[in-house]
């Protein structure tokens, strides 16, 4: 049977021990390798996924803790060929180099946008990225990308509301 939850909108039953780390289940059991593992100490944020739309570290969460809840990974953000506005902003603003940290950064960015809206300032974004490490970019373009992505998400939400 396995533990049931919703992954990127689809029901799944993960055949793994309830105490397995969610990140390992996503990658090894369910083959969704977009979510990365960058540290052993719960500090880097490469493993961030959305749990009921809120970013969490999937390396510090057990499979059983997501039973009957909804998990979104980087694979689940785009709609067909259309990137999620936060993904598109990372592309436009060149918010990545090697890309290893990017899935976790995009998730953290979505969390920041949801908490602070489309006009979030640079300082807030920088402060709230404390749980995400990047070895390449120096963060400048990541901050730009998250601000652009937040503005685009806000715009899209307004359009949808009209």
């Amino acid at each position: 049977m396995g533990t049931q939850f919703t992954l990127n909108g689809q029901p799944v039953a993960a055949d793994a021990p309830p105490t397995a780390l969610l990140v390992n289940v996503l990658r090894d059991t369910l083959g969704q390798t977009g979510t990365h593992i960058g540290c052993d100490t719960s500090q880097c944020g490469a493993c961030n996924v959305l749990l009921d739309d809120v970013p969490v570290k999937s390396c510090t969460l057990l499979l059983a803790q997501v039973a009957n809840r909804s998990v979104t990974t980087i694979e689940g953000l785009a709609e067909g060929d259309r990137l999620h506005p936060m993904q598109e902003a990372f592309r436009q603003e060149h918010g990545l180099q090697c890309g290893f940290c990017t899935p976790g950064m995009v998730m953290a960015g979505i969390g920041i946008a949801n908490r602070h809206g489309g006009e979030v300032d640079e300082e807030t974004v920088a402060h709230e990225l404390e749980g995400n490490l990047c070895r390449c970019t120096g963060y400048v373009n990541i901050v730009k990308a998250i601000r652009a992505g937040a503005a685009a998400m806000d715009g899209a939400a307004r359009e949808a509301a009209e």
Binding site: V56, G111, E128, G131
Partner: peptide, 9 residues
Amino acid sequence: IGDPQVRVR
């Protein structure tokens, strides 16, 4: 405390 992802858990 920690970072936003730590604080929600």
